[in-house]
Amino acid sequence: MSAKKGILLLAGLLLASFLPLLFRPADRGGAWAVIRVDGIVERKIPLGSGRDETFVVETPQGRNTVQVQGGAIAVTDSDCPDHICMRSGTAKHPGDVIACLPHKLLIEIRDAPAP
């Protein structure tokens, strides 16, 4: 019966893993990138405007270079120790998140600019 219990456990864990997908907002176009540092909104950028830009976000812990290009946003450079934010790639669909935990920087894609 050990194998059966193991498969049940696996199924339960997989189910728990995919649970957040149910709460993913629908992609209705007009996505906004909301950049927060330590919980405070730093910038809100409409991704559908077609304007490309690159800027630096200064945080008390360090700096991140953020690039907006072709309706997608990415962290292209960071002086954090793990570089997880850079390796996260680009975000463009509502629900996508890029986090730089050491700098407490968070880029969330939302389907509306608020809150």
Binding site: L14, P20, G39, G95, V97, A99, L101
Partner: peptide
């Protein structure tokens, strides 16, 4: 811990990938 520290429930969207990797 990340959700609590960053005060962002949106980080849960990482769970499908991270949970799967953990398994």
């Amino acid at each position: 811990v990340a959700v609590l520290v960053m005060e962002s429930p949106a980080l849960w969207f990482y769970l499908p990938v991270l949970g799967g990797c953990g398994i």
